[in-house]
């Protein structure tokens, strides 16, 4: 069975919450409109459709849009050699969705990383702590409103952080800027609030 058939089966089974698969560059993406159904969908994917490998979990910050967060799950089926992406949106007010680490143990660390970097919480996660930054770091660095150069913080005896001197750095171009002039780093205030 190829990925398209599998995605269709998923759609048939969750008719009201899973969208029709979209294809781009040979990859199929389905959207889950009801994040609370995630564990059931995940269980179905693993047990019925044999997507046995959870490759990756990613989060996107659609800053300035609503819903703010998008969660991206990459599944792979060893049996069918097929790949499927599942996306689901979470609004900033909620910032929470159920964990799937009961289905795949590997989700535990991926979810911890998302919590650490974006500040999205996972209900039912056994050990939701920061993983890359230290416990007590006050910010969520991958959010779009957090500047690359960082912000000062201090945790006595554990760690501290300072603002990195970007000096409008030659290698830092503005993300998503329309044209070359606005992308040019020197037009921005050095060390400005992002």
């Amino acid at each position: 069975m190829n990925a398209r058939d599998l995605a269709r089966q998923l759609r048939i089974h969750f008719l009201h919450s899973v969208t029709e698969p979209a294809e781009f560059r040979g990859e199929l993406t389905v959207r889950l409109t009801e994040p609370s159904q995630l564990p059931e969908v995940a269980g179905f994917l693993r047990d019925e459709l044999k997507f046995d490998l959870l490759l990756d979990v990613t989060s996107l910050d659609n800053y300035g849009e609503d819903p703010r967060w998008t969660l991206v799950y990459e599944f792979y089926s060893l049996a069918h050699r097929a790949h499927l992406r599942l996306k689901t949106d979470v609004s900033e007010e909620v910032s929470e969705l159920p964990t799937i680490c009961r289905v795949w143990r590997t989700a535990e660390w991926h979810e911890r990383e998302i919590y650490d970097m974006m500040g999205i919480r996972f209900t039912g996660h056994p050990d939701l702590r920061r993983i890359l930054m230290w416990e007590g770091y006050p910010y969520f660095p991958l959010r779009k409103d957090f500047p690359l150069e960082g912000r000062p913080s201090a945790m006595p005896e554990v760690a501290f952080s300072e603002r990195a001197p970007l000096e409008g750095g030659p290698f830092v171009t503005a993300p998503g800027a329309k044209d070359a002039i606005r992308r040019e780093p020197r037009v921005r205030r050095p060390g400005g609030e992002g």
Binding site: L55, D56, T58, L60, D61, V72, E74, T106, W109, E113, T173, A174, P175, G176, A177, K178, R183
Partner: peptide
């Protein structure tokens, strides 16, 4: 693995590295 989310232009909007060592 590299997951790249692009909104057009010269810079990625989000680039996630699926690091095997981490997993």
């Amino acid at each position: 693995g590299f997951y790249i989310h692009s909104r057009g232009g010269g810079t990625p909007y989000r680039l996630k590295i699926r690091a095997p060592s981490f997993v």
